[in-house]
Design a protein around this nucleic acid. Structure first.
Lengths: 153, 153
DNA sequence: CCTTGACCTAAACCAAGGTTTAGATCTCAC
DNA sequence: GTGAGATCTAAACCTTGGTTTAGGTCAAGG
């Protein structure tokens, strides 16, 4: 509780406090700042100070990272969100819907890939120049039949 | 046909020929060689020469890349495959089954993530310190309730 | 007042998967 | 045999998402 006192006294957070409470390394927080994902001001001694709202922002960043969204896109998404208040349901929807679509596309792509692989495993894939796995864009081989994937046995 | 003559005369392929026929850049082929994914010998003038079988190997590499398998793992998988003949169905199975599992896991992970996101979008997510999206490992927050994601409106 | 821990910056470093560049050498068709 | 185009090497560079290090400054309890 000794250590907690500081937190209770001022509403601003130091970078170390944000790190501890958000579970993100100090170096990562500074990195996010260079990328414009979070913001801070400086105290008299040039140290970063954060509004408590930064914790929400960092939480959103962490979620987006888990979803596999690149930081640049997270940045764009966050620029929709207000800095000093909680976003409205509508604002959150705007962002999460976009990420949801992104996720869907990736799942779709992987699923199609899996189906192609299954086809290729199952069928023996003796005619690999027509195999969808080898010809993702359905471009006919320009140089005669390619090598077969494996021996007919 | 002029240019084709060279191909027809010798069964060995130069790096440029492999690049053209496989659709992989020369620089990438050299890179794969440094990683031990493909092999070549040198001619009298120190230029790389490849057996035609390298084309099959590169095809497998390309497929694996599409599946999202890192080169180091592709290397491990390829070390199972023979260099100078087409792999047997069994050998191909050994590899493709592994990749299939890998793919499955990733699809699973993304699907779970999508479901969590859906839950979070749908439910309003007012209690974010218990939200599965924010607490992937189900660890209780140690520092009181976190900030809510958005306003109840 | 002083020491220790937190903080500051810039720059280097890491992984993956290559590409680009520079400068030298080889090959081949004519 | 010669010039163009292909190839060679090593090293630098690129992106993404940071971490580490070095050398200094700040803050605060005792």
């Amino acid at each position: 509780m000794e250590k907690r006192r500081k937190h209770e006294i001022h509403k601003q957070l130091s970078v170390g406090e944000v790190a501890q409470r958000s579970g993100v390394a100090v170096s990562a927080l500074r990195f996010y700042e260079t990328r414009g994902l979070i913001h801070s001001w400086r105290n008299a001694g040039n140290q970063r100070r954060y509004a408590r709202d930064v914790l929400r922002r960092v939480a959103v960043i962490k979620i987006a990272q888990r979803l596999g969204i690149p930081l640049a896109e997270i940045h764009d998404a966050l620029s929709v969100l207000p800095e000093k208040r909680a976003p409205s349901a509508k604002e959150w929807h705007q962002i999460s819907d976009r990420w949801r679509e992104d996720l869907d596309e990736r799942i779709d792509k992987l699923t199609k890939l899996r189906d192609q692989l299954d086809g290729c495993i199952g069928c023996g894939c003796l005619s690999l120049n027509t195999c969808p796995l080898r010809n993702p864009d359905d471009i006919a081989s320009e140089d005669g039949p390619g090598p077969r994937m494996f021996d007919p046995q």
